[in-house]
Design a protein around this nucleic acid. Structure first.
Length: 501
RNA sequence: GCCCCCAUGGUCUAGCGGCCUAGGACGCCACCCUUUCAAGGUGGAGAUCGCGGGUUCGAAUCCCGCUGGGGGCACCA
């Protein structure tokens, strides 16, 4: 299955792509790369009313962010395409659809329909009332002759419907993942293939494009399975060879229903904003509906490409478990070279405070070299990049004002604490090089001397120097903070305790 | 209402007739390590493999029914 593989991701620009959409893109991309085939992106912009400003942009941005490069497709947000099977915007391929529709019309496999939306609506309501399956009643096919339809079509707005061959036998859809699925033609109705505005519906456009773009495998979400018999019929009537179909299990929200906006942060780009690494998201999404074996789950991009295959794709829908994604993200963060992590963290620190960045009073741009020295302190504490500002803010703010409470460790009196911190100030004054080992050598023995536990002493110093009870390792933190900052903070802490006493 | 798909711990999954007293991972709990928080290590709780029938010497694995969940039934994709 490596010869002439051509797959496609065919989104419609109707909104921000969510992780379900992009997971489909990922599987297509992986399959293309695995087989050495082509990955094409086609924009299905046939619905003039549902078009959303900026949607195309976020689709392409999502793909780029995740590194899902396409061999053929749109060049940029401004239009333009590359590849030999273009154009890659359906709105620019109208002639092809009309040609196909004409062919179907001529062969008697399609007919013009003049029914008004009102009539169709009333018909559907009636069917619903009678608990009948909704579907077109063939009014224009049975009440009008072909001749009459042709005459009216020249002057009246109309749609073109595909005529379901009800008299034919069972329609079989061969799905690579699900096997053979049978549909009785009688449960299908004459669906619209060409709308009155001259644009095709999904069904027609899809089949025509997949044919002319020589798509070998159609991999899409399972929600498309029920419309596949229509597509099979279209291929048959057009006398074209259908591609291999593979309907991927869906990604579900926590309530097990189809993913949608109301499930919260499902937009792919939102994960970028939330500090997830593209390699982590990719790895995680690959595991939603695909697995290699019973134990491997961390894959580099190359390993994914190497191992991915359709025959290990599952059938059941999968809930997007953000907790596991977060765990995996932390794993990838820890694996990053510190310098690279620093680069990735920088924009998260620099963005406005309202968007999660450091306080706006901190001057931008930040000193990248300084950030690089800080990064190792938080690397194994980070699960998402957007947590960096919170963890690092103490290095960018002035002297802390710790709560007196935090300066007094459990089991110690305020007086003892003040005494201890005073002693620390004294001892630190004598330290030569302000570096980790020297600081530890100076401070660690003091716990015994003062009759405190190490944790108690260090806790008090931590609170004094950082203003927090939780921080990166104390001595590294103190080095990054600098001598002056630490000594001033320590003196302030002593003063705070004395004022309270 | 009709059609289709699916079904292993809370979640993602391995399992394609005997290796399963059902394995891994996330999450959860405990302990260890430890200057806090993490990370790491060890151990643990958690699944009558949705239910009921078959087939078979033997079924999580095959068949049927049921139930449950999901999806689809537009001049939307």
């Amino acid at each position: 299955m490596s010869d002439g593989v051509r797959v496609r991701f065919a989104p419609s620009p109707t909104g921000e792509p969510h992780v379900g959409n992009i997971r489909t893109a990922l599987f297509n991309w992986l399959f293309a790369r695995h087989t050495g085939g082509a990955f094409v992106v086609r924009i299905e912009d046939t619905d003039q009313e549902r078009k959303v400003e900026g949607a195309l942009e976020s689709i392409l941005a999502s793909l780029r962010w995740l590194g899902l490069d396409w061999d053929e497709g749109p060049e940029s947000e401004d239009g333009g395409s590359h590849g030999n099977f273009g154009p890659y915007f359906q709105s620019e391929r109208l002639a092809l659809y009309h040609e196909a529709a004409e062919k179907l019309l001529a062969g008697g496999d399609a007919y013009q329909c003049f029914c008004s939306p009102e009539r169709l609506d009333a018909m559907r309501k009636e069917q619903q009332r009678n608990q009948q399956p909704p579907g077109y009643d063939r009014h224009c096919l049975t009440q009008l002759t072909a001749e009459e339809r042709g005459r009216r079509a020249a002057v009246e707005p109309h749609v073109i419907r595909f005529r379901i061959p009800r008299e034919d036998g069972t329609i079989y859809v061969n799905d690579f993942i699900r096997g053979q699925v049978a549909y009785e033609p009688t449960v299908l109705d004459d669906f619209v293939i060409l709308k009155s505005d001259g644009y095709p519906t999904y069904h027609l456009a899809n089949v025509v494009d997949d044919h002319f773009m020589e798509i070998s495998h159609v991999m899409r979400a399972e929600e498309w399975l029920p419309s596949t018999p229509r597509h099979v019929l279209l291929y048959r009537s057009l006398d074209w060879e259908p591609p291999v179909f593979a309907h991927l299990p869906m990604i579900l929200g926590p309530d097990r229903s189809k993913l949608s906006k109301r499930h919260g942060a499902t937009s792919t780009l939102a994960y970028q904003q939330d500090g997830y690494l593209p390699e982590a998201l990719t790895n995680f999404m690959a595991l939603l509906g695909w697995s290699l074996d019973d134990h491997t789950e961390v894959f580099s991009r190359d390993e994914l490409v190497e191992h991915f295959d359709l025959d290990r794709v599952g059938k059941a829908g999968a809930i997007f478990n953000a907790e596991k994604l977060t765990w995996m993200n932390g794993l990838y963060i820890r694996q990053l070279p510190p310098e690279e992590l620093a680069e990735r963290i920088l924009p998260f620190l620099e963005r406005p405070h309202a968007e999660g960045g450091l306080s706006d009073s901190v001057e931008r741009p930040l000193d990248a070299a300084f950030v690089a020295t800080l990064t190792p302190l938080i690397q194994e504490r980070l699960k998402r990049l957007d947590e960096a500002p919170e963890l690092l803010s103490l290095f960018f703010e002035g002297l802390p004002s710790p709560a007196a409470n935090d300066l007094v460790p459990k089991g110690v009196s305020p007086e003892q604490a003040a005494e201890a911190l005073t002693a620390v100030v004294d001892r630190l004054t004598g330290v030569g090089e302000w570096e980790e080992v020297a600081l530890e050598d100076a401070l660690r023995p003091m716990a015994d001397e003062l009759g405190l536990k190490t944790g108690q002493l260090f806790g008090a110093v931590r609170a004094a120097v950082t203003g927090r009870t939780v921080s990166p390792p104390l001595f590294a933190t103190m080095v990054a903070l600098g001598r002056t900052h630490c000594m001033d903070a320590l003196n302030n802490a002593v003063a705070t305790l004395q004022a309270r006493a």
